[in-house]
Simulated scan of single mutants.
Amino acid sequence: MIMCREATKLMSLKLDRPLTRREQLQLRLHTLMCSACRRCESQFELLHGLGDKLPDTDDTSSRS
C-alpha cells in the first residue's frame, strides 16, 4: 500500500502522462481508503482543467 506522498506524486504524474496499470491500481486502492487524497485528486483535476482554459500569454511582451 502506498502512502499519501506517493499518491499525490501519482496524481500529479497522471496529469502529464498516462499512468501504468500498476500505478493506476496503486492510486485507486489508496484513494478508496483515503478521503484526504480523494479531495486532493479532485482539486488537482479542477486546477488542471482551469489552467487549460486560460489564454496563452507571452511573458516577454509584458516586460518593459
Rank of each mutant, 00 (worst) to 15 (best):
L32Q: 14
S42V: 04
A7I: 02
L25I: 10
G51R: 04
C37Q: 00
C37L: 03
T57G: 03
S64P: 12
C34T: 00
L10H: 03
S64K: 02
S42I: 04
D52Y: 08
L47D: 12
E45Y: 12
R39V: 08
P18R: 14
E41V: 03
K14I: 06
R22P: 02
L54A: 06
S62K: 07
C37R: 04
L13V: 10
L19C: 02
M1I: 12
C37W: 05
Q43L: 13
R21S: 11
T60E: 10
T8M: 11
S12C: 04
F44K: 00
I2C: 01
M11W: 04
S62C: 05
Q24D: 13
L46P: 09
E41S: 12
R5I: 09
T20L: 05
Q24R: 10
A36R: 09
L32D: 12
P55F: 05
Q26P: 05
K53V: 12
T20W: 01
D56R: 14
L27W: 04
S35N: 12
S64D: 05
M3E: 14
T60S: 12
L47W: 11
T31V: 15
T20A: 00
L10I: 06
M3I: 10
L25R: 13
S62D: 06
S42F: 02
P55C: 05
L29H: 14
K53H: 10
D16G: 08
D16I: 13
R21E: 15
E41Y: 08
D16F: 14
T60P: 04
A7F: 06
T57F: 04
S42E: 11
E6H: 01
M11Q: 11
C4I: 15
P18C: 14
L32P: 01
S35L: 06
A36T: 04
D52G: 12
L15K: 01
M1N: 14
S35H: 11
S62H: 10
M1F: 06
S61N: 01
R28W: 09
M33E: 09
K14G: 07
M11N: 05
L50A: 10
E23K: 09
S42H: 07
E6M: 04
R28Y: 15
L54W: 08
L27N: 03
D52Q: 15
Q26R: 09
L25M: 14
L25Q: 13
I2R: 00
L15M: 11
